[in-house]
Design a protein around this nucleic acid. Structure first.
Lengths: 151, 151
DNA sequence: GTGCGTGCAAAGTCTTTGCAAACCG
DNA sequence: CGGTTTGCAAAGACTTTGCACGCAC
């Protein structure tokens, strides 16, 4: 999905819900699109944004990220480091991607695997649970940290 | 695993690491064993404990839970409600159990499914990642909340 | 006895909220 | 213009930390 499409999605969903397409919201979403980092926290975004826009407050970043999440443009993640992180909810791109979290260096790597196909039926049948979303976190040690530890 | 076995495991692992088997640590672990609730927060434990032991401080509860987790007696969980929760790390009982989190009522139900068997090789081979543990969270709506919403 | 563990309160970190001013539509 | 949204600072929620005292070993 192109960057401009995502910004357009924001514009549309905001209009639909009668919210306002403010300068701050554009800037904050753009920071996501510009960033190479996949899993940013509110502080990360704030840092990216405040150089060129010193007038934007941290509270606005928090409020915007929450809004974008409710509009299903972002997903809120938690890697257990005490802060919420966000990623683009690019549902068209990868159907199901998950996270490998290194216990050594804290790096987070993504991987794709559609184990849910088989699981979904089982859960809905046996537990009567209607699935909306899922998150798989796999903890362990990445290649680099395995090397470091074995020396 | 019997309750007394878990307490013994605590005693052994504490001795092994030259920590101390204090009254507070026993009481706090016992609270876990006595509780019917599976996923308790530090405050939950503190509430259970403070009636009979008003001298135990919340900080001690936090410190004990962290110790037990490092001794692999407990697992630290996060269901996105802003506080850490813990469960017994009863590895002998269920090999791999995961959590269904209801977006309606917040209830957490456990389910077992060993999808990891197939996944583990793939991750280790393709990503060179050495798996230690994994957590699968499935978000959706439980039976009761589906009924409520459809009325 | 010695040093780890505890209780208390204070500090820390992340996040939310109240309110007047600014802004979008 | 009118109701949202924002910035700021303050408050809130959870967790960690500093320090003197107490307890396990």
């Amino acid at each position: 999905m192109k960057q401009s499409d995502i910004m357009n999605a924001l514009r549309e969903r905001i209009k639909e819900k009668k919210y306002k397409f403010t300068r701050q919201r554009q800037i904050i979403l753009q920071a996501f699109l510009d960033s190479k980092e996949n899993h940013m926290s509110a502080e990360d975004i704030f840092a990216m944004v405040k150089d060129e826009n010193p007038d934007i407050g941290l509270a606005t970043v928090y409020r915007s990220l929450e809004l974008f999440t409710s509009l299903e443009l972002l997903k809120k993640l938690d890697f257990g480091d005490g802060r919420s992180r966000y990623e683009l909810n690019d549902r068209n791109l990868k159907h199901s991607h998950h996270h490998l979290i290194c216990l050594g260096c804290g790096r987070v790597v993504e991987f794709s695997y559609d184990f849910l196909d088989g699981l979904k039926d089982k859960i809905e049948r046996e537990d009567g649970f209607q699935i909306v979303d899922s998150q798989l976190k796999v903890y362990g040690y990445c290649r680099e940290c395995q090397k470091k530890n074995s020396i």
